[in-house]
Every structure is written in C-alpha cells, then in structure tokens.
Design a binder for these strands. Sequence first.
DNA 1: TTGAAAGCGCTAACAT
DNA 2: ATGTTAGCGCTTTCAA
Lengths: 333, 333
Amino acid sequence: MDVARLAGVSPAVVSFVLNQTPGQTISHETRERVLHAVAELGYRPNRAAQGFRRGTSATIAFINHDADFGEFAAAAIKGAHETSNRHGSLLLLVSTGGSNRQAEELIADLLDRQTDALIFSAVGTKAVTVPEAAHRVPTILLNCYTAKDDFPAVLPDEERGGREATQALLDLGHREIAFLTGRASQWATKARLRGFRDALQAAGLNPADSTVRAGNYHADSGYDLTKELVRSGALPTAIMCGNDRMAVGAMLALFEAGIRVPEDVSVMGYDDQFQLAAEVRPALSTVRLPYDVMGQLAAEQLVDEVPRTRRTMVHCPVILRASTAAPSRTAGR
Amino acid sequence: MDVARLAGVSPAVVSFVLNQTPGQTISHETRERVLHAVAELGYRPNRAAQGFRRGTSATIAFINHDADFGEFAAAAIKGAHETSNRHGSLLLLVSTGGSNRQAEELIADLLDRQTDALIFSAVGTKAVTVPEAAHRVPTILLNCYTAKDDFPAVLPDEERGGREATQALLDLGHREIAFLTGRASQWATKARLRGFRDALQAAGLNPADSTVRAGNYHADSGYDLTKELVRSGALPTAIMCGNDRMAVGAMLALFEAGIRVPEDVSVMGYDDQFQLAAEVRPALSTVRLPYDVMGQLAAEQLVDEVPRTRRTMVHCPVILRASTAAPSRTAGR
DNA sequence: TTGAAAGCGCTAACAT
DNA sequence: ATGTTAGCGCTTTCAA
C-alpha cells in the first residue's frame, strides 16, 4: 500500500485511521500524516477487498417476487433506496419472476455475494413462501407475509383504509354507496370490503343493501361495471372503486351517460396513483397506498434505525379531492 | 478450502474444475473426485472473494439520473434486468437525485466496488453531463445523451413517432388536427412536433393552419386545453396529445361537453402507458414508447451481445385502438 | 502508540 | 499433462 509508504507507516495504521477503528489510539500527528498521504495520492480503498475481508458488502437486495416491476415496486424502491443510501448501502435489484425455485437460487446467489440484508417484496399483497436461506441474513417482507410469520413484515392496513374511505362518504351524507371492488380473490380486496361493511354497519346501515360488484383493478372493469349500474336504474349517490384506474373508468362511463361527478355521483378511488389520481378531472378522492413509506420503513428496520416488529401495519389515509361531494339527490334516479 | 482437502487436491484444482478454466487439463478422475467433494459438502464459491480476486463483480449499475423512479425507470429496468440476469449479472440500482455532484460520487463508489458496467439513464430524454470516471468502465446512456456524444446512447425516435402518429390520423382522413403538446422545453416535445409538422407538410397541408397548444404532460393540462378548444368553437376532427395522461384528460373534457370519442373527435395519445392506454374507454390509440426494449438494448450492448453504436434510435410504433376513427364531419362545429 | 504478520477465499502465474 | 505456490488489498490479532 503506497499510502502507507508515503506516510511512513504500516498499512495497518492507514486502515485504523481511515476506519476510525474503535479501541485504537493513533497520535494526532500520525493521523495527519496519513490523511495527507491519502489526499496526495487520491487513494480510495478498494471496497471489493474490504467487503471480501469483512464479509459484508454494504448492499441490500430488493427482491421483487413477481414478474414485473410496476408502479408499486418503483415507489417502494424509491423509499427503500433513500434509506439504504443514507446508510451507505446500495440497493441490488432482483426479480424472481414469481417463481419459488428462482427465489431459492437467487437468494443463494445473493448470500454468496455477501449481501447484507434482504427486502422480499410482492406486488399484490399476498402470502408467500420465502426460502429458508433468507433466515441467514436480516430479512424483511414488504407487502407480503408468510403463513408462519417467521419474518417481520410491512403491510398496508387495507381494512382501515376501506373503513375510512367509506366513513368519509358517510360523513358527506351518502347513504347509498356502491362498491366496485378489485379482483375478488385478493387479500387487499377482501380487507377493503370488510372495512366497507364495518363502516356501513357502524353507521346503522345494512351492508346487504349496498351494491357490491367485483371488478379486476383494470380501468375497463370500472367502466363496464358503472355502465351496468347506470343501465340498472339503481344508481347510488356514491361509488367506491377498487383502485384509481377503475375510478377513472367509472368517471368515463358516468360522463358518457351525461352524469356529472361529483354533482350527481361521488366517486372514490384507491391507491392515490402517481400522476393519475391528482391529475384527472375532477381530481380523484382516494385512499393513499403509501408504498414509498412502506419501502422506507422496511429499509429502516433493516439498517436498525428502527426496531423490527412482527407486522407493521401502515396507515392508508383518505385524501379528499374533487370527485366527492355531499349528495344532491336521493339515490335511484 | 475443505473441498480441496476432501478431494485430496490443492485449492487451485478445485477452482480449475469449477470454472472450467481454459487451457487447463485435469484428469477425468480428479475432476470427478472434486465434483463429488463439492456435492458432498454443498460447497458454493464465495462470489465476493471471486470478485475481489478477478476484479469484477458480475454487477451492472443502473443509474437513474433523476429524483424519482417513475414508470419509465421501472420499464427500462425491467428490460435491462432480464438481459443482465441472463448474463449472470445483477443490477445495482442507484439514483443521483439529478445532481451532477452526486453522480460523481456515486460513480466513484461504484468503481470502488468493481462494478462492471454502467447504464446512465434519465427520465425525460435530455442532454446530460456524465462524470469522466464513467469512461473507465463500459457505459451506455439510456434516454439521454452528452453534447460530445462520447458515450453510446439509446434513444427513442420521437420525431418518427410524431410523424407516424400524424400520418395515421391523415390516413384516416383527418385534415384538421390539433396538437396538444407536452412541456414545450423538452427534447421529446420538440421532436414530436417536428414529426407532426413534417407529416402535415408532406400531405400538402400547411402546418401553420393547425392548432398547437403547449401543455405539460399532466392529465389536467390535456383537460384544460381541450376545454379551451371546445369553447373556442374551432374543434378539430382529431386531437393529438403529448402523452396518454393528457389524452385521458382530453377525453374527460370531451365527454363532459357531450362530445363523443371517436365519433365526433379522434384522440391520439403517446407513450402507450402501462395499465392506462389500453384500459381506458375508449381504448386509446397511441404511440408506444418502448422503454423496456430500450433498457434491454442498453444492457445487451453492455454485455456484448450486440455491438455498441454511437446512437441507437429506437422505433416508437403507432398503436391504433378505439379512440381514433375516420372523421364523420368537417371540423369547426 | 505503533508495527509485523497472518490470512480471508480465491485464481493466475508458475513448477513439476 | 497435472498440480502447486504465491499473492490480490484489506483488516485484525498480537507483540513491541
């Protein structure tokens, strides 16, 4: 190591100085000499060698247990990225394509590379199988959970989100609220529906009186379902949608039928989708799914800024914009 | 190395066998013995040590030279990810937050880590300054370019995209086409506008007769601009939009005014945004911005599956869906 | 308060 | 043709 030579010390001392190794006492003068030599030579430690020696890599893997990177992943990565960077770690981005076998191989590879920690994430909230090997390193589940709950998980509190969205509509004075849900089989869909019914019940209404139709989270299902609602002649005063895309579909269908939003019908979305919910006209009232915050929380638990907990349920706040208002008529039309 | 001991050979032999090092002749018998010991012990080479020794890391960095990861990044990453994985490399995802100083530090860090190659990407296509250090390793620019063109770049052919979209409308019989552009200052905006005017000119029309208004790529600007168009009383038979979100805004405004799409007015988007263009009703005709393909091309050039070229202009194909049709009236209304 | 020496796990240059 | 030794750049005992 030429820095050591230039400073007239041993390589060990350089290491001590640069790493501020605790329990080491280097004289002020020597430290200065080393620092000077470092600056002179523009020396930068070889991180690969450091990592090899220390058995760490200053790297966190973000595992996307799904075929695609979608908006979810982008937002969650953004959150995780910030935190890990602040901590001096880089994010290794990998995808299993949704296959458990690939997940297994991938994690083995990641461990071979001395990856320090894992964020195991899914797109639609769901139960997953995490390879055993993940236990060998700090691992946190993002937007997914295992049956045995043997890893800490960060999850959105969908039930509360559904309940509060419904409550917001009730507070506005709505009594006839339809729910055009997302794909019925999904965890999030069920949780939101539970919240919806809870809120109705708590308000003294009979959930069975409300129209609930299952869509699939795509905009066209919101459009089609709303068309049906219009045709049926039993239009409610408010429509809750499985997500923002369905809400946009619903608004398109409403407008096409000459029905105004929110004057005639209020529309509530879900997700607060980036560059959609806030931009559409009328701007969509919705429930914010805070993927970025979730990613950040996961990373924080990993770098020990925050203690790890079994399940972190993240609040999804209602955001009231222009697509909801007090009802101006009684339902039915 | 216990594998070596178990097989009764030196560690080097194990390395030769496992890496099939060319120019090495290991007796069949020894090879078998080694392989057997490897299986027995479940031995996996330490990739960190390998990387350290070989000076490579089987890692490609995807540098997002912007504050956010958006859909662009997600799509491009998806493309790059596939290719790099097939090649056995992992994608290191980093962001400069748009700051050149941070880019500098980041690249230095990446080089310290023996990162094998860099993809330097921006969100809105633009000119960038790339730190000198990037020259020390294969680097490719994605959706951006340098003034000196000293790095190969992969870019969307926006001019052709704008031209072909316009041509598609002309082919349908439209003669009065308005263009609600994105942010006027952006490279993409200008290129598309050039394409628009070229196509008009080539069709014997005077581009100056067409209404061109500058929006900002947000849905609400499409909405507002279209409202103005409607109010002005000079509604064209077709509206080209800066992107799909603006097109959705435009459709919302049209519907609200009782104007049908595509019967009364055709609407053309741009981007073929995931989960939006194809799902909206009527499904949006648009121009596909193939970010995934671009990411893939960039990665392929990096892993040498494809020779590097100064500028790779990627074709943006027109996708005709339901929001465009032959005009049923002459413009003006 | 500092330095010498050993060695992390692997592979490229060397022996045999 | 087959196999071994030396050493990558760093950190960490331990001795001075």
